[in-house]
Write a protein that binds this DNA or RNA. Structure first.
Lengths: 176, 176
DNA sequence: CGATATTTGATATGGTCCATAACAATTATC
DNA sequence: GATAATTGTTATGGACCATATCAAATATCG
């Protein structure tokens, strides 16, 4: 920004709200008046967070019939892929702190989706396994995610872009 | 779960768990034993959330000297770009609920970064403006973000990919 | 072996963010 | 001019995240 422009801006700004308000009121149709996002729409963190909220919202909507949150779905997926691991291992790979993982497992276990089993090798640890119901629910959940959730992303971005997006996000998650 | 089913599960699971544990112990180098992420690494929500956490973490680190959170930065940016708007307008464009916006503004105002001004048109509303200090801090914040934060993304993805990523995330945020 | 340290699941607790209800002051509507 | 709607605010509760701490079990080391 040039100096003169800055001066103009400053003067305009000191006269500030009143003038801006009048200018808006003089506009043809004075209903919506959306704010200018400006540089915000280029900020990685801003757009990333808003996209994440939208995706989670859609995920919850798709999973309404199964009552699974994204976090719960990730636990079921991980336990299915890695049976016989204990709470500490599963929690830490998901970035969940052990204390906070307890209530989460209490919930899944109370719904008979997974089970804690005392390890015979190390009687301190609880080994995690999916129940039959847990496997069935997870199977249905996967189908719902594929057909309703990820399919939505495909029709929005296209398959190639979808893969590129996942790859870039993974890179950020792992190397940033 | 029925009693009989529980008993079956318990037996099957203990066997599977022990088997898996032995299998891992027989592995060549038995140190880390990272879990298999499996389909999780392809889940949009999962990778999106983890990327967002990493980006926010890096943002806070870059902003340590200015003590600005991503949300605070977004408020300053929006108020700078749209002077003379009231709390409701600014909060709603950022997806912040008015009640929660109050404490946020209290904080920024107590640090003399922005100011609430009673509107003369509508004495209910408070018009938001950046203070001189607020403008100066925001200016420094922008430089920090550009040189330390977004630059990091550029060297990780490359400029073209960075723009493509922002564009796709924006599309998701707006059209998903 | 036995004393000490570490690990595991769990509880308690506090902080932050998000969401809703309700309120006084002000303005809009009829 | 009575009623409804809006603005900023407070109070409050829930969800999520982080730390300290504990008992039980195991590992470590003298």
């Amino acid at each position: 920004m040039t100096v003169s422009k800055a001066a103009e801006k400053s003067a305009e700004a000191t006269a500030k709200g009143a003038e801006a308000a009048r200018a808006r009121k003089d506009a043809p149709d004075d209903a919506g008046e959306a704010l200018q996002l400006g540089e915000l729409s280029e900020q990685l963190g801003y757009v990333l967070k808003r996209a994440q909220l939208k995706v989670f919202e859609n995920f919850l909507h798709c999973m309404a019939s199964l009552q699974l949150t994204p976090a719960q779905f990730s636990v079921l997926l991980l336990v299915e892929k890695n049976p016989g691991r204990n709470q500490t291992e599963v929690a830490s790979t998901l970035g969940i702190l052990r204390p906070n993982f307890v209530a989460m497992l209490d919930n899944l276990e109370s719904r008979d989706l997974c089970a804690r089993i005392r390890s015979t090798n190390d009687r301190r640890s609880h080994i995690l396994v999916l129940t039959d119901k847990g496997k069935a629910v997870l199977s249905r959940a996967k189908k719902l995610v594929a057909t309703k959730h990820e399919a939505r992303l495909n029709e929005l971005l296209g398959g190639a872009n979808r893969e590129a997006l996942i790859a870039m996000l993974s890179k950020i998650a792992n190397e940033f």
